[in-house]
Design a protein around this nucleic acid. Structure first.
Lengths: 131, 131
DNA sequence: CGGGATCCTCACAGATACTG
DNA sequence: CAGTATCTGTGAGGATCCCG
């Protein structure tokens, strides 16, 4: 079964930090943002996100489903067809994530400038120490 | 030097995802929320957060400083004294993180219920398959 | 006191192969 | 097609020692 791969790691964390980790995890963010536009099938979602292994996508979807953010609709047909969409709770989560994502997007320029200044100063201090 | 421990991992990601990872990282969130209330000294912050190694705290602070979110004020005295606080940019980031954190806090009950329902169904399916 | 340098380790990402 | 099972490496994270 091993439903709770992710939970084992955080057994000593407060529970609401765990949800936050799921939601902001590498693939969690992308899944939420993708499903916010529309629902997706598994492989379709995989292609849309790109460079995600089947395993990680399945794992991410299961975790988000377990947390009640994603709805999984498996049709008993051959070949199998499974549609993923957001629940009401999931849409709330996606909105939060999008806000955060939009902020980083807006402020990216400032961050980049800060980084250059930081690296510049670090290099100066390094050269100074070598003389 | 090795300034960019975290960046190596994400060399193939779009840059604004990197900032997001820093901000929402395990210790990044806690640091931002702590520094939003007031400024802290290193060890003081370490005690306040709890269960964070010196290495991880230092690394987190450096990354956030490099991104221009945290201000580091090192006083040249003996014994050394270093104060950490948020920049204007950092306060914006902290506000976003707090919104997300507050959301997970509010909806924690719903998530927990969803989890129990999910585990319940999983157990049923498992027992059914064994009969 | 505030870190830097080193070593260790285990948990997680990814690749591969198989199944209903 | 939509997964699961299994194996393996690798790098984030922790412990320890050291120094200004």
């Amino acid at each position: 079964m091993n439903v709770s791969t992710w939970n084992v790691a955080g057994e000593d964390m407060c529970p609401h930090r765990l949800v936050l980790e799921h939601v902001t995890s590498r693939w969690g963010v992308l899944v939420l943002l993708a499903l916010e536009e529309r629902s997706y099938r598994f492989s379709e979602l995989r292609r849309h996100i790109g460079r995600v292994s089947e395993k990680m996508l399945a794992q991410t979807l299961q975790t988000l489903e377990r947390d009640g953010l994603v709805h999984r609709d498996a049709k008993p047909v051959i070949p199998p067809r499974v549609d993923y969409s957001l629940t009401a709770l999931g849409r709330e989560a996606a909105a939060q994530v999008r806000a955060l994502s939009a902020w980083t997007d807006r402020r990216m320029g400032d961050v980049q400038k800060a980084r250059e200044a930081y690296d510049q100063k670090a290099r100066q201090a390094y050269d100074e120490a070598r003389s």
